[in-house]
Design a protein around this nucleic acid. Structure first.
Lengths: 340, 340
DNA sequence: TTGAAAGCGCTAACAG
DNA sequence: CTGTTAGCGCTTTCAA
């Protein structure tokens, strides 16, 4: 384990000089510069990041907090975030909270001791109280951006990158309405996904279609809940001919339930999801969904965070990314019905 | 940002004493101990991990290298690993290599500068050369364990935690044979999944069943490749009645292909996967698979790594975890056939 | 252009 | 039981 001093001694200069050539700061004569570089090579010197971090109060480390990386949606975003972070020279510490408050707090506390440069938080990972506490680590301010905040996180005043979920709901409704459906249902995580519901409802209203209470079912973003909600919907006196699940996992659960009921997709029931997780495209039939542009989302989030890191005075910003509809094969025109 | 010295000054002792009460080392009188603790509380003191790391040469940080966290199998394991690591007080840096050598090398180099305490590597993330180079960071030895090594990584002599894949192949074959199938096929990533193939082949041989070259198709562990391979298999003069895909993603691709061909699952074709990714249980029909006990795998891997960290002399170990069959609904008894 | 010196915040010997 | 001292490996003034 060679240190700066080793290199310096080997060349016959001082460690400050070696530091200068390595960081590219200060000015060094071309000749010593070359000798230093040669020595670095020869001794296989690697700068020690922890020493540097201590001296500069900068760790080149970001943390990403997610509810659970086992959810493919978060995993796919995490991959993009990791990628973007590394491109900017930052490493990523991964934290799962399992949506558990005490766990989240622990994680945060541990992070605060290690002087991460910034924090990226997926919405719903932490309680809002903990979240706000997190913005101040000791006395110093922790740069942080919220990625896809949930309802109650919107008022925190933090920087955030969100998807235009209201628009997503609108897209889903418009697509379904354009196919001639008028008995629609929604499976929604509430209140987390409220804007999706509202966008959906508003677009329906604009087409003169009502969304009765019965046709709004609640889930918790898992397949299981999508499955259950769909069983309930299908057992209604007049079951829906089309449904929108506010995330893909619930949509997959819905498909499963419909198939278990012996229905044919999409003829007997149209299903629209939201997220565009990889696997959705490979279901049978492939899932029609409102896609989250994950690469863009990650890019915006990381770059916004870096802006906060580089400039502590940089004001809080709210960015919004627009989703788009991907029509695959779980949606079809409304069939003729017996009872108009 | 209060430091040890601040606390010390506030109490009227020396920073060494404060350090002692915080780390629990050395001996401190009960009275000063209480005063220190009070001051810590009052000032909201948080120990600075980077300073501590520098002093102790220990960072309480592990890194996990995976090919891609977007693959649910890795994501689910990553979650278990993160969980286990945190329970032991370690944080986790996540690295995706995208199976790209240069990217893997970069990651490794960056990690080497930050003095991580240990490295967990999913098999196939890195070239073997880089992998071996990674064991020595500068002159110091980097504790490391390989998780589910691939063929060419077995000879590295590193500690590893593997699944008994030969046995997994055997389980798949036995299950299918017990259902009366004798025209079997396999979709395998080669040579990465060679033991799975060999176990499968051996178990078939034991039942007097041959596995002709045609019925061995190659994939790269993606759904797409499973899909393609299955199309090929189904277009054979005598297509198989059952197939084993050496990972779940390929099995899902196989299901998709079969359904696209108009086949009914499992009556027209039995499919067995391997991994037990979450989503497999929710397909229609739910996927029969050979399950990886991910929790145990993660636990073994992390704990083995910690053993290496705590004791540099701890010898390399190879642990093996046994998979088990989960029968769901993609496998069924062989149907009667027209042509014996 | 280079060197000397101080310091980042903490731990670890060793004295007292 | 507590204080003193000396680092950990690097950066950063400030002089020379």
């Amino acid at each position: 384990m060679t240190t700066l001093d080793d290199v310096a001694r080997h060349v016959g200069v001082t460690s400050a000089t070696v530091s200068n050539v390595i960081t590219g700061k200060g000015s060094v004569s071309e000749s010593t510069r070359r000798r230093v570089l040669a020595a670095v090579e020869e001794l296989g010197y690697q700068p020690n990041l922890v020493a540097r971090s201590l001296a500069q109060k900068k760790t080149l480390t970001l943390a990403l907090i997610v509810p659970t990386i086992a959810n493919p949606f978060y995993a796919e975003i995490a991959e993009e975030i990791e990628h973007t972070a590394w491109r900017h020279g930052y490493q990523l510490i991964l934290c799962n909270t399992f949506r558990d408050r005490s766990r989240g707090q622990e994680r945060l506390k541990a992070l605060s001791r290690r002087w991460i440069d910034g924090l990226l938080m997926m919405g719903g990972s932490l309680s809002v109280v903990d979240l706000l506490a997190a913005t101040r680590f000791g006395q110093r301010r922790l740069p942080m951006v919220l990625c896809i905040p949930c309802e109650e996180e919107l008022a925190t005043g933090l920087s955030m990158v969100d998807l235009d979920y209201w628009y997503a709901g609108e897209l889903a409704a418009q697509h379904l309405v354009s196919l001639g459906h008028h008995r629609l249902a929604i499976i929604v995580e509430y209140p987390g996904h409220a804007p999706r519901l509202e966008g959906f409802r508003a677009a329906l209203a604009a087409s003169g279609i009502d969304l009765p209470p019965d046709s709004i079912q609640y889930g918790d973003s898992t397949m299981q809940s999508g499955y259950q909600a769909t069983r309930t919907l299908l057992s209604l006196p007049t079951p829906p001919t089309a449904l929108f699940a506010t995330n893909d996992l619930m949509a997959l659960g819905a498909m499963e339930a419909a198939l278990d009921e012996g229905l044919t997709l999409p003829d007997d029931l149209s299903v629209v999801g939201l997220d565009d997780i990889m696997i959705g495209a490979h279901m049978h039939p492939p899932l029609t969904t409102i896609a989250t542009p994950k690469h863009e989302l990650a890019k915006q989030a990381v770059e916004l965070l870096l802006r906060h890191i580089d400039d502590a005075e940089s004001p809080s910003l709210s960015l919004t990314v627009r989703p788009h509809l991907i029509v695959r094969q779980t949606t079809a025109p409304q069939q003729k019905e017996a009872d108009g």
